[in-house]
Amino acid sequence: MDYITHILIIIGIYVILAKSLNLIMGFSGLISVAHSAFYGIGAYVSALMTLKYESSFFVTLLCVIVINSLLGIILIIPSFKVEKQYFLFITFAFQVIVFNTLNNWIELTGGAMGISGIPPLVLINWKILSRYEYLLLIGVFVFIICLVCGLIVKSPFNRVLKAIREDEVLALTLGKNIIIYKMTIFAIGSSIAGIAGILYAHYISFIDPGSFTVMESIFIISIVIIGGAGSYWGPVLGAILLVLFPEILRFIGFPSSIAANLRQILYGVLLVTFIMWKPQGLIGSYKFFLRNAK
């Protein structure tokens, strides 16, 4: 039972990550390889703040949102001047820089040794100690974030984003200030990734830079694409499938040396298959990436 709870918590965290990336990718058509960097920043900021200053949950939440939003806005700025593939490289560069900083700035982050003994979260007076309480917390956050995404989807804000995604030039002619829209959505998406980071850090009680690499970003991208970019339940479905499958492999008893590689091969195959043959994902309806997307 305990282990199932653990799996559910991990799924919950990835749902949050996938939904937030879906906001960025699915609704404004930008591919970001930097999502795990924002995830990592959230985790490290929260871990360090609670360990050094014993700050409360809401303070760290606020800090993470502010930091990630600012960084997100800075990254978006060049996206108007360059094509989408170059934006991908910008996010790649950001991701690598963040990872290396976490890994090399040992005085601050402990480097590759990571940070251990992260204390449990405290919400006002409620100390979240047991797994079940944590599951409850994650559930609440998933619910809130789904609500927020849902609101964004139904809003006029979203219609503008869709217009931007399909045809930037047209959207420009309609007089909408694209820059503000893109910035907002990227800031929101990145902040939510940071929140997932906070939840992760306090759950596992140990973080190291190895959890926040380019491969992790690509994993989250795979979840979004396979589930269906731009759809509401797509990221949820994708997260459940991509998290469960290696766990099943593990129980069937594959030697762990091969299991890790097989898992990555699976992700690679799924990624390529879906991009090339089923770009709308399992239950999406937007054929992501295609030039004349319909």
């Binding site: 591919i31 989408k84 593939q85 991908l88 491969m215 690509i218 991208i221 795979s222 990555q264 091969i265 992700y267 690679g268 195959v269 990624l271 390529v272 991009i275 090339m276 770009p279 992501f288 990436f289 295609l290 030039r291 004349n292």
Partner: peptide
């Protein structure tokens, strides 16, 4: 034709991983 350079780029990542 149909696929944007972005999707091919991402797919090539996938192939590298494999």
């Amino acid at each position: 034709n149909a696929h944007s350079p972005l999707s091919l780029l991402l797919a090539s990542f996938g192939i590298y991983i494999i």
